[in-house]
Simulated assay, not measured.
Amino acid sequence: MTTSMIPSPARWDTFVRAHPDGHLLQLSTWGQHKRAFGWTDALVGVANASGDLTGGALLLFRPLPLRLGTMAYLPMGPLLTDSAAEPALWDAIHVEARRHGAAFLKWEPGILDKPPPFASLGFRASAQTIQPPRTMLLDLVGDEEAILARMNQGTRRKIRQSLKGDVIYSEDQRADVARFNAIMQATGTRNAFGVHAPEYYALAYDLFIPQDGALILAEHESDILAGIMVFAVGKSAWYLYGASSDVKRNLMASYGVQWKAIQWARARGCKRYDMWGIPDAEPEELETEFERRSDGLWGVYGFKRGWGGEVLRSLGAWDRVYNPLVYRAYETAVKLRERRNHAD
Rank of each mutant, 00 (worst) to 15 (best):
G256N: 08
L112C: 10
A243R: 10
L312W: 01
L207C: 07
P63Y: 04
F118W: 11
L251I: 09
D206M: 02
S170T: 08
H94S: 05
M5P: 01
Q161S: 00
G142W: 08
L60Y: 08
R340M: 03
Y205F: 14
G302Y: 07
G122Q: 13
R98F: 00
E338Q: 12
Q173W: 00
T14F: 00
P109Q: 07
G55S: 06
W12L: 13
V195A: 07
V141E: 11
P133S: 05
A226M: 03
N191E: 13
I130K: 09
A88E: 01
L163G: 11
W39H: 15
Y200L: 02
E145G: 12
F180G: 09
G51T: 05
G154C: 01
K164P: 04
R190Y: 10
H23V: 05
P116C: 07
P117A: 09
W276M: 14
A253V: 14
L336N: 05
E96I: 00
T189M: 03
S162G: 15
M252C: 06
I130N: 08
W107M: 03
G22C: 10
T288Y: 01
S244D: 10
L59I: 14
W307Y: 15
R313S: 07
S28N: 04
L53N: 08
L53F: 13
A261W: 11
G142D: 10
R337V: 00
I183C: 00
L217V: 12
R156W: 13
V233S: 04
F118K: 05
R98N: 03
A186D: 12
R174P: 01
S8R: 14
D319Q: 00
P87C: 04
E285N: 12
D206N: 14
D295P: 08
V44F: 11
L217S: 09
K260D: 05
I228P: 00
M151S: 01
F193D: 04
L215G: 10
H196G: 05
P78S: 01
M76G: 00
T187W: 08
A18L: 11
V44G: 01
R337F: 08
I262S: 14
T187K: 12
L79P: 13
S245C: 06
M5V: 11
A84W: 02
N250V: 08
E291P: 06
L163Y: 05
E96V: 02
G277T: 10
W259G: 02
G22I: 04
L27T: 12
V334P: 09
Q263E: 10
A49N: 07
L163H: 06
G142C: 15
D274A: 02
H33E: 14
W90T: 03
L336M: 13
L297G: 01
Q161M: 13
M1C: 07
G55F: 03
A146K: 14
L286F: 02
T40M: 12
G122T: 04
G56R: 01
L251W: 05
A343W: 13
E310V: 09
L297R: 14
A237F: 09
P109N: 08
M184G: 07
A88Y: 01
Y201K: 00
R124F: 02
L59K: 14
I6G: 07
V311M: 06
A226K: 14
T14W: 00
T2H: 13
W259H: 03
E86I: 04
P283D: 02
L251F: 07
A146I: 07
T81D: 11
P279T: 15
E199V: 13
R305M: 08
R150K: 12
E310P: 04
G51S: 12
L105I: 01
A85F: 03
A103Q: 06
